[in-house]
């Protein structure tokens, strides 16, 4: 390797480290010798396990992001959040109504929202978090489910909220209510489930299970993939 690797300085829990530039916060941590056991998951920005708080050089603002998706910058100060011990009441979805009363009962803090929008500002998924909390207050559960859909439950919103709302769990409840009660039913899905329950595919599955590896490979690549 003729090219020399450019390095940047970062501060992890107050300690100085030199890491390759263009590292993510997560790779910077591992490069610096930290073994990650909590707060690490898919490493692809989908699971929300690696919420991190950081501050960039010369900035006063504390920012939030996913360690696996945020690229380090020179002088960055980093503190990871291994876990957000947020409230998540148990419920039986069969007994809930898809309206505002469910949230009054399970997440009364929702109604303390002061519309400060701090949750939206911190969200690494660019979700309009405050808007979906307001949707719930207005009783529009479907809109709340759609608006919160990209949430990966990293929990940064709840950590920042001055009204102590647990936005990410509230959004999940909205999505579950939507899925159970409000989303249009798919007739095709019901039809296919019936077919499966009636054992219409049993024969094909049994045949596939009886095949050896080579036969399976042949079967897989030889399948009909023409688009009609």
């Amino acid at each position: 390797m003729s090219e020399e690797r450019k390095m940047v300085t970062v501060y992890i829990l107050g300690e100085q480290f030199s890491v390759p530039e263009s590292s993510t916060i997560m790779t910077a941590l591992e490069y610096s010798g930290f073994q990650l056991k909590r707060g690490v998951g898919c490493r692809e920005g989908f699971c929300g396990a690696c919420a991190t708080v950081y501050r960039e050089k010369g900035e006063y603002k504390l920012k939030g992001g996913l360690a696996c998706q945020t690229v380090v910058s020179d002088g960055m100060t980093i503190a990871r959040i291994p876990f957000v011990p947020a409230e998540k009441p148990a419920f039986d979805i069969e007994e809930l109504k898809p309206d505002v009363s469910t949230f009054v009962e399970l997440y009364p803090s929702v109604f303390r929202c002061v519309s400060c929008n701090t949750c939206t500002k911190i969200c690494p998924q660019d979700i309009n978090v405050m808007d979906y909390i307001q949707d719930i207050i207005k009783g529009d559960i479907a809109s709340a489910a759609h608006t919160s859909f990209d949430c990966i439950r990293c929990g940064l919103c709840a950590l920042r909220c001055p009204a102590e709302i647990v936005q990410f769990n509230v959004g999940m409840l909205a999505q579950r209510l939507y899925g159970k009660y409000l989303a249009p039913r798919s007739e095709e899905l019901d039809k296919r489930i019936n077919e499966i329950e009636n054992g219409e595919y049993r024969k094909d599955i049994d045949r596939l299970k009886s095949l050896g590896k080579d036969e399976l490979v042949e079967e897989y690549y030889g399948r009909d993939i023409s688009i009609t």
């Binding site: 929202c113 519309s115 405050m130 808007d131």
Partner: peptide, 8 residues
């Protein structure tokens, strides 16, 4: 459009 709760 996109009004929010008045604060009650």
């Amino acid at each position: 459009p996109k009004w929010n709760c008045c604060g009650t």
